[in-house]
Deep mutational scan, measured.
Amino acid sequence: GKELVLALYDYQEKSPREVTMKKGDILTLLNSTNKDWWKVEVNDRQGFVPAAYVKKL
């Protein structure tokens, strides 16, 4: 099944490779191999968020 993460904080994208999320959002985790930036999918968009801003559910 898909792995989900919870947004712990708001995050505003700073580049086209990133995505914006709001605290409390549930996101689909696509890739967590990089310890600093995790790739997630939110609202049919894929991009990176800081790993410290999310936690695995």
Rank of each mutant, 00 (worst) to 15 (best):
G1Y: 14
G1V: 14
K2Y: 12
K2I: 13
E3M: 13
E3L: 12
E3W: 12
L4D: 04
L4Q: 10
L4F: 15
V5Q: 01
V5T: 03
V5L: 12
V5A: 12
V5C: 13
L6Q: 11
L6M: 14
L6C: 09
L6V: 15
A7Q: 01
A7H: 01
L8P: 00
L8M: 09
Y9G: 06
Y9E: 11
Y9H: 11
Y9L: 10
D10T: 06
Y11C: 02
Y11N: 01
Q12N: 14
E13I: 06
E13A: 15
K14P: 05
K14I: 07
S15P: 04
P16W: 09
R17V: 11
E18L: 05
E18G: 12
V19E: 00
V19H: 03
V19A: 06
T20K: 04
K23Y: 05
K23G: 05
K23S: 07
G24F: 05
G24H: 05
G24D: 06
G24L: 02
G24Q: 02
D25R: 03
D25A: 07
D25H: 05
D25K: 03
D25Y: 05
D25I: 04
D25T: 07
I26S: 03
L27P: 01
L27E: 00
T28R: 11
T28P: 15
T28A: 11
T28C: 10
L29A: 02
L30K: 04
L30H: 05
L30R: 04
N31A: 10
T33Q: 12
T33S: 14
T33D: 15
T33L: 10
N34A: 09
K35N: 13
K35I: 10
K35H: 12
K35E: 11
D36Y: 15
W37H: 03
W38Q: 01
W38R: 01
W38I: 05
W38V: 06
W38T: 03
K39V: 14
V40G: 00
V40T: 00
V40F: 01
V40W: 00
V40S: 00
E41L: 09
E41D: 07
V42P: 00
V42T: 15
V42H: 15
V42R: 15
N43W: 10
N43Y: 12
N43P: 12
D44E: 13
R45K: 12
R45W: 05
R45E: 05
Q46N: 09
G47C: 03
G47S: 02
G47K: 02
F48G: 01
F48V: 08
V49K: 00
P50T: 02
P50W: 03
P50Q: 02
A51Q: 06
A51M: 05
A52Q: 13
A52L: 12
A52D: 12
A52T: 10
A52Y: 10
A52I: 11
Y53N: 07
Y53Q: 07
Y53D: 05
Y53C: 14
V54A: 03
V54S: 01
K55Q: 14
K55S: 11
K55L: 12
K56F: 11
K56I: 15
L57W: 08
